[in-house]
Design a protein around this nucleic acid. Structure first.
Length: 513
RNA sequence: GGCCCGUUCGUCUAGUGGUUAGGACGCAAGGUUUUCAUCCUUGAAACAGGAGUUCGAUUCUCCUACGGGCUGCCA
């Protein structure tokens, strides 16, 4: 690689919440920077003032922080190359556009948006769906190349609105090497005279992006595939300024799980998985769900995104952010779009849940309960988590599947009741209750031994009796080791639940009869 | 329509001019388990199609098909 220190940027437009594709682009930039000991920069591309969305900037920053991929410098993070928001850099761009005009590489254009619309409309009527402002059509338009010098001068003096367009030459092959895709070549005949500077005094993305990347000493541009078509223009601009272009890498898109097309914001809630890192409420009050609020761990989220387009080349799949940083190479990023797989995403979360200690899970569960105003448990959360973690994908599963640790048992699973609870079961359970009352140690082992002695004496099978005991303690027909549950509940609670349960079930059974 | 990019099991993907084309998710079967989950074992499942280069192509080239992106004074 070059001797220059690696500096990469993530440059979203704050026009709404960041979607997973954007977060993945940020992640790859972050990983690339860390891998090379470089800087990861956040720059906000807000040159379109009409698309300003309140809260979007904060959302982007919060999302990156949550995912653990905070920029080293940039909007909200400080740094020597600021400001990092293009609207605050407004005054910097015009001189560069002027320079291009002075060099004859750009020109003023006075056509109004309405005139351009009309032009495109007319062309479409005539069967040309793709009218472009280019080396052929510009001579028919109102610009400093077609108008006399005097008229141009006069219009400028008068304050006529104008834009500055790049003067794209005819029949020139522009080539550049994309780190992911190899050589890409485009002939300028297929490129148009893009607007570089708008009539509102702001640059377009194309100009701002080049100028800022230059000023911020960006070495590698890693961005989505949707930018590939305009990359030749950017390469041309670097050349026009006489600047060395950064290296480019265009990432494949993330596609929707069903049907064709790229993942869009509505797919998530339609298909039952989030497409945003955090919850987002739009101006109509519509809520889009986020990974965080859906119960995904940030490290799982990062792992999921990393593998959407990248792999280490071997069969490992679980990587921490640090491990990803050391392993990540742009060359191992695939070229083709990846469909998002919600099932695999859940699997990842399950893996990360299981990697966590009971203590960590207990803390997370406590937070979850607090945030959602749920019932607290009279029991120690740590053993509960230890017991439940093998069957949980999300923290909420521990709470929901283990609801009997958080409140009274007031319902009894009907299927188990009808299948396992026989006529003599109540008597049997009462008998067992009496034994239970006399157990001195209420450890899982002791309870298990006593229970097994009991059914051996009764000449009964475990499968016929245990489900009923479970029903009394938990109200459900399945779950983790019942003896461990009994230990957590404790002797008094078990006795209470059994007495109450036998009574309630007797009532239920008599109603049936 | 034009331009650009892409195409290996259902999905994410590994892979090489000669492989039984590997793994993971999901799915199915069996085992373990009081049950559910976990776990273990096994199974089904792919090189888009057609030419060419070659002794030999999934791998290299071209064409076709399909998919995607772009085609704004949006980014």
């Amino acid at each position: 690689m070059s001797e220059k220190k690696v500096r990469v940027r993530f440059a979203p437009s704050p026009t709404g919440p960041l979607h997973v594709g954007g977060v993945r682009t940020a992640l790859y930039n972050y990983l690339f920077a860390k891998h090379h000991g470089g800087q990861f920069i956040l720059r906000l591309e807000d040159t379109d003032q009409t698309r300003f969305v309140p809260g979007a900037e904060e959302y982007i920053i919060e999302s990156l922080k949550w995912a653990g991929i905070s920029p080293d410098e940039g909007q909200g993070f400080g740094g020597e190359y600021g400001p990092y928001k293009q609207s605050e850099r407004k005054a910097m761009y015009k001189p560069y556009a002027d320079q291009l005009i002075a060099d004859g590489k750009a020109y003023y254009a006075f056509d109004t948006p309405e005139e351009l619309d009309q032009m495109r409309e007319n062309a479409k009527q005539m069967g040309m769906p793709n009218w472009q402002y280019n080396s052929i059509t510009r001579s028919n338009m109102k610009n400093s190349l077609s108008l006399s010098a005097e008229e141009v001068e006069e219009r400028l003096k008068k304050g006529d609105p104008y834009v500055i367009r790049i003067k794209m030459p005819r029949d020139l092959d522009i080539k550049f090497e994309d780190t992911i895709r190899g050589w890409v070549s485009v002939n300028t005949n297929n490129l148009d005279d893009k607007v570089l500077f708008k009539s509102d005094g702001m640059p377009t993305y194309h100009l701002a992006n080049i100028v800022d990347d230059r000023l911020m000493e960006i070495t590698h541009v890693i961005r989505g595939e949707e930018w590939l078509p305009s990359a030749p223009l950017h390469v041309f601009l670097y050349d026009a300024f006489g600047w060395e272009a950064p290296k480019f890498a265009h990432l494949p898109l993330i596609l929707k799980p069903d049907g064709p097309g790229k993942l869009s914001k509505r797919d998530g809630d339609r298909l039952g998985f989030p497409v945003f890192p955090l919850n987002w409420t739009n101006s109509d009050g519509e809520i889009y769900s986020g990974y965080k609020e859906s119960g995904y761990f940030p490290d799982a989220f990062v792992n999921i995104l990393a593998f959407l387009g990248w792999n280490p080349g071997d069969e490992r799949e679980l990587f921490t952010l640090e491990e990803l940083s050391t392993e990540f190479k742009l060359e191992r990023v695939g070229k083709s779009g990846a469909k998002f797989d919600p099932d695999k995403a859940k699997w990842y979360n399950q893996q990360y849940l299981r990697k966590r200690s009971a203590k960590e899970l207990a803390d997370l569960l406590q937070t979850y309960i607090g945030e959602n105003n749920l019932k607290t448990s009279p029991f120690e959360l740590e053993p509960v988590c230890e017991l439940m973690k093998e069957r949980a994908t999300f923290i909420k599963d521990i709470y929901e599947d283990g609801h009997y640790f958080f409140g009274e048992v007031d319902k009894y699973d009907e299927k188990t009741l009808s299948k396992k609870w026989k006529e003599n079961t109540s008597a049997l359970m009462s008998e067992w209750l009496e034994i239970l009352k006399n157990i001195s140690s209420f450890k899982a082992d002791s309870v298990e031994t006593e229970f097994k002695d009991f059914i051996t004496k009764k000449e009964l099978g475990l499968g016929g009796v245990l489900p009923n005991f479970r029903l009394l303690l938990t109200g459900v027909g399945s779950g983790p080791s019942l003896f461990s549950i009994a230990e957590i509940l404790g002797k008094d609670e078990c006795i209470k639940r059994m007495e109450l349960g036998i009574e309630k079930i007797n009532e239920l059974k008599s109603q049936e009869a």
